[in-house]
Design a protein around this nucleic acid. Structure first.
Lengths: 231, 231
DNA sequence: ATCTTAATTTCGGCA
DNA sequence: TGCCGAAGTTAAGAT
């Protein structure tokens, strides 16, 4: 990884056009060919960047540019999309290179897939008599997260989110419309389950007869036969 | 901006839990207190990070950790959410500080607002006899991107996206329902215009009698009286 | 301040 | 590979 601290301007042309006026910035050149332009604030997302695969070439500085003080110009071109990044450098304050070696990668825990698995193991939290039909129950308009059967009382479609917002209610509504046309399933009720349900989403859900269920991840995990097995 | 190249492990606890095994990485500490952990590959998104406001404190290295070779431990805590990041450092290869000064910020062109302006100037692309009523036509449930009138044939509501996905169709459907109740406007047809329309969105749209229109940004821009006026 | 929507979204999973 | 949906989404604009 090459780290360059430089006074520069940057111009991007691709899906949109963008320009960065002259200022001191960090230019991060990664081993895979990608480049990131970072300022000293504004988190996480660079001001400009180019994804691999891309080629970085030093191009000749034109007379006009040289007169303005440009000492070096880099052209970065994306192989696939043809997006371009032009970096005009006025001064380099630092230029170092480090070999970082292999990245073993990030291990995650706690996302929706996990919630889904845990809730599928503990369907009684949705309804005391519920029986799991299956996770990812496939329909023509997409998979229902969890489909449950309640003996003598039809079925329950569960839509699962980490954070329950309004679009999840829309999604579940579409599923319910479809599922209730199936005489083998009807009547199908809806349950919107999430670690947190936004007031607007709750209002819309209840307005449509959809029950809201707030999940406590730690509680679900604590009741799981597998328990906490990470790391 | 402080740039540290170090052999480290990182543990995140917050909305989820995540762990980074031991490896060499770049730790970027920005002026606003935020921190980014980058590897030598993988684009633009750091492996781990913490957004401002957050506090970084050096904590004491426990005996067990010291025995494993940890020479320094940083705890980063988010002020608002309470998220935590623990960085255990085994070796520091480089540690430099640079003052970058003010960031003037990025100038953009080519996003949805621009598309809307261009299409509003070229309504014939929607319908040969269409006349612009107005952009951002306000309704009780939100603004319709573009409302057009077709002499003797009612109106057209245009929903505009850069990339046409299913939620845009839902949105337009809601608008159409509402607008068609207005006898001064009815009949109102819907047009879903985007630079790219996903198959699922197209299917749903056409199923609801909504016409899909794929826009070529460069073509729209080329036909504009203003042309390319950026920079 | 809160909420809605876009993003050069990125990222992962699955057909 | 392409499509689809989630993300510690983030970030910008509107209410």
């Amino acid at each position: 990884m090459r780290l360059v601290i430089a006074d520069c301007t940057v111009d991007y042309t691709g899906r949109l056009s963008a320009h960065l006026p002259r200022a001191n910035r960090l230019l991060m050149l990664k081993g895979d060919g990608s480049i990131l332009v970072h300022s000293d604030s504004g988190s996480y997302k660079p001001l400009n960047w180019m994804n691999p695969p891309c080629t970085i070439s030093t191009i000749e500085v034109g007379e006009a540019a040289a007169e303005l003080g440009v000492v070096e110009a880099w052209q970065v071109e994306q192989g696939k999309t043809g997006d371009k990044l032009l970096i005009s450098i006025y001064e380099i304050f630092s230029d170092v290179n480090h070999d970082l070696g292999e990245e073993p990668g990030l291990l995650k825990d706690g996302v929706e897939a996990n919630l889904q698995q845990l809730l599928a193991e503990q369907v009684h939290r949705v309804h005391p008599e519920a029986i799991l039909v299956r996770r990812e129950y496939f329909t023509a308009i997409g998979p229902v997260d969890i489909l449950l059967s309640v003996p003598g009382a039809g079925h329950i479609a569960v839509e699962l989110k980490r954070r329950g917002e309004i679009d999840g209610v829309e999604q579940l509504t579409r599923y319910l419309e479809l599922l209730n046309r199936d005489p083998l399933l009807a009547p199908v009720r809806g349950v919107y389950a999430a670690q947190e349900i936004k007031p607007q989403a709750r209002t819309l859900a209840e307005d449509r007869g959809i029950e809201c269920l707030v999940l406590d991840y730690d509680e679900l995990k604590g009741s799981s036969p597998e328990g906490n097995t990470l790391f």
